[in-house]
Amino acid sequence: MKSTRRHFFKTMATGAGTMLLGPSAKAMSSVEQFNGYPERVGMLVDLSLCIGCRRCEEACKRANQLPPVEAPLNDSSVFEHTRRTDAENYTVVNRFANPQPNQPAVYVKKQCMHCEEPACASACLVGALRKTKEGPVVYNPDICLGCRYCMIACPFYIPAYEYHNPTSPKVRKCTLCYERIKAGGMPACAEICPVEAITFGKRSDLIKLAQAQILNNPGEYQNHIYGLDEVGGTTWLYISKVPFAKLGFPTDVGTTPFPEYTRGFLSAVPVVFVVWPALLGGFHLFANNRQPAPAQEDGVTRNDEETEQ
């Protein structure tokens, strides 16, 4: 599905006329199964390791030329409220009380999940958001309209908008340090993490690592890799000893890739374009070929306005 759609983007750029018909049947076809580029990267977070030092926030801001962190890193008062990502914070660490007694609090790093089939990219009407073959979902501000439908579509409440920027407002979110990855590096957060709670690698490898970690510590971890199947899979994977529902993870997002939800509707578009003219034209002919009503004051019923002169 993905490759065909990507291919479709390229070919579609030639003829705007076909745009009327909406996505073609080819783009909508799922016969050609594509399970993602095998070399795409992933990030695995072991939540039981995170110590909440927020050094990843700091590194992220440095890597993305964002203003420095507001609260000092050792100021634990930031954890009193659950924070979300915003235009100046691509990643935030939140603290959640451990539901098990006498266990330390759990810190959860939050950022763009870089879905395998991103809702935001399928929401974007100009293709400003795009899933790269390396894995990151990247954003092109130069073509963005600022409709913010991506923010509606994102099930994780990640994309943020520069509401205070009048001239060049942008959708802001984690880029998975796309440039660094392409240059052979790793995202800044994974690099800085002092306890190596974030592991960067090939997504396929990380899944095995996560499974092994759960298997080798029987009874300790939740038997679930968050992001393996959620919304069709995400680049970021999480393992935890505490149920994900208690850690602010949305657990009602399902495993269906979000583009699937609008696929049925979009496939109906060409049908309407083909069937409606015939149907409506037929109605028109039928309605205007009937016998004129016998007793009409103003005379005969006329076919069309153009004949009136």
């Binding site: 750029a13 100009v126 439908y149």
Partner: peptide, 18 residues
Amino acid sequence: HLPYPMFVSFGTGSVMFL
């Protein structure tokens, strides 16, 4: 950028595009 979906860049998988 309002004319962009018509002339510059096409997000054909989007309902908003339609």
